[in-house]
Amino acid sequence: MNYSFLSAVAGVAVAAGLGATAASAATLDDVKAKGFVQCGVSTGLAGFSAPDDAGDWKGIDVDLCRGVAAAIFEDASAVKYSPLSAKERFTALQSGEIDVLSRNTTWTMSRDTELGLNFAGVNYYDGQGFMVRKSLGVNSALQLSGASVCVQTGTTTELNLTDYFKANNMTYNPVVFEKLEEVNAAYDSNRCDVYTTDQSGLYAIRLGLSAPDEHVVLPEVISKEPLGPVVRQGDDQWFNIVKWVHFAMINAEELGVTSENVDEMMDSENPNIQRLLGKEGTFGEAVGLKNDWAYQVIKNVGNYGEVFEANVGESTPLGIARGLNALWTNGGLQYAPPIR
């Protein structure tokens, strides 16, 4: 009894001590030393981060990690993925288990300020919505009073849901699961009347249900859900790398540089393109990378528009329109500071 207690205490102490070494040190040096980027992704959300038939991870969140890898290693495949539940994700990042969390994570003030994390931009502007069975005959979220609602634990969704029902004087019964697949299964087996999560997620999840045509996503968007990559606080260099990889992809789309034409664009006379592709200036060196970092990102992964179209756009089964995620020049919100 005594001995097991003592050894347990010693174990806790050692574990706490080990945590110290993991979280410090420059992330870029660690990443270069081990030769790959450890990227936290979802456990499978089509279009954002999900393994395909061949077991390769695909999605716009995945492509951000691949972009970071391309900028560092000139090789977009130098990424290892850690599938994380909503509950596990922040701890995995805080403890140093992953280098960047790119997992449809909503940027909120408390997450930004209390968890020791930094959000490095917004790669998808989303909003929370509701999905129901068509047979319910519901066409507005305001008719949902009394419903059973399936929701994933540890998400902003869980709180927005409460706020929305409260604000509209409606009641509901939550059915809460930790893993996305469990929520999907519960909704599919009719345990709940309503499924709520980010609208992009609802479209992705609907594809995986046994009868996708029998479900409808309601028009109401009840929250702002800016989704973006997250890094640990206190390593500004790494924060800058992730942030600017994202910006480089948006700037590339704005300047018309694609993975197809990037080699021809090297000869462009446009000074904006020259700075982007590293022909002019030493922007890469300032963040510890080579000057052709953005060229590598675009060449290996593509610009933001290409990534969007390939993973969630109109030509994919998800068929999501650019909407808020169009460039600012097209009336959307995607806007990157200039490279100069």
């Binding site: 509950k87 922040f90 408390s110 997450r111 209390e114 634990t153 540890g154 869980e158 709180l159 809460v176």
Partner: peptide
């Protein structure tokens, strides 16, 4: 250990 942990961090 699930919801509260996540909402408070």
């Amino acid at each position: 250990g699930g919801t509260v942990l996540n909402q408070t961090g």
